[in-house]
């Protein structure tokens, strides 16, 4: 099953490498990973999407907590949570397809962030399912390049990590 983990970690050189090294060394998988500083610049917030049965997820969480640089690990997907991903998609846009792309962009509330005579670059934000839908619709038109942030996530209501 897919799990989304929120990890608070010391913002020190090597901390990220400890985490990714842990995953590769123990044969856990990472589907996506997103890291950035928090309001407190000495801490980083890391959102990690992984897959595994209950036993593996338990091990992943415990092993992460064992790292000296890791402050907190929460499986946000255990409860109610919101999850977002952003993607930039450069799509071939010539003649008749230009209008079609704009229509799709409109329906999914994407933004056109770059325009050239032969391409549009779209910014899409949403849950993974929405990104997937947009990508599927644009694929036949011709996606030239795609860049995704990976998920970021947060627990609903009052809960914080």
């Amino acid at each position: 099953m897919k799990h989304t983990l929120s990890v608070l970690v010391e913002n020190t050189p090597g901390a990220l490498s400890r985490i990714t090294g842990l995953f590769s060394g123990r044969a856990f998988n990472i589907e996506s990973l997103n890291v950035a500083a928090t309001l407190d610049p000495t801490l980083s917030h890391l959102t990690l999407v992984t897959r595994g049965d209950e036993h593996i997820i338990e091990q992943i969480i415990k092993q992460l907590r064992r790292l000296i640089d890791v402050l907190k690990v929460v499986d946000v997907s255990e409860g109610e949570f919101v999850e977002r991903e952003m993607s930039l998609i450069k799509v071939r846009a010539e003649d008749e397809s230009r209008a079609e792309i704009l229509r799709i962009s409109d329906i999914f509330r994407c933004k056109i962030v770059d325009v050239s005579p032969k391409s549009y670059t779209l910014e899409v934000t949403g849950p993974e399912s929405k990104l997937k839908a947009v990508i599927e619709l644009l694929r036949p038109i011709g996606i030239k390049e795609i860049s995704r942030t990976g998920n970021i996530a947060m627990m609903r209501e009052k809960k914080t990590i």
């Binding site: 050189p13 090597g14 490498s17 400890r18 090294g21 842990l22 060394g25 000296i68 640089d69």
Partner: peptide, 14 residues
């Protein structure tokens, strides 16, 4: 060496 020993130390520092 910090990179090399990351998986076989409890912690390490450069």
């Amino acid at each position: 060496i910090v990179g090399i020993t990351r998986p076989c130390t409890k912690h390490n520092y450069l």
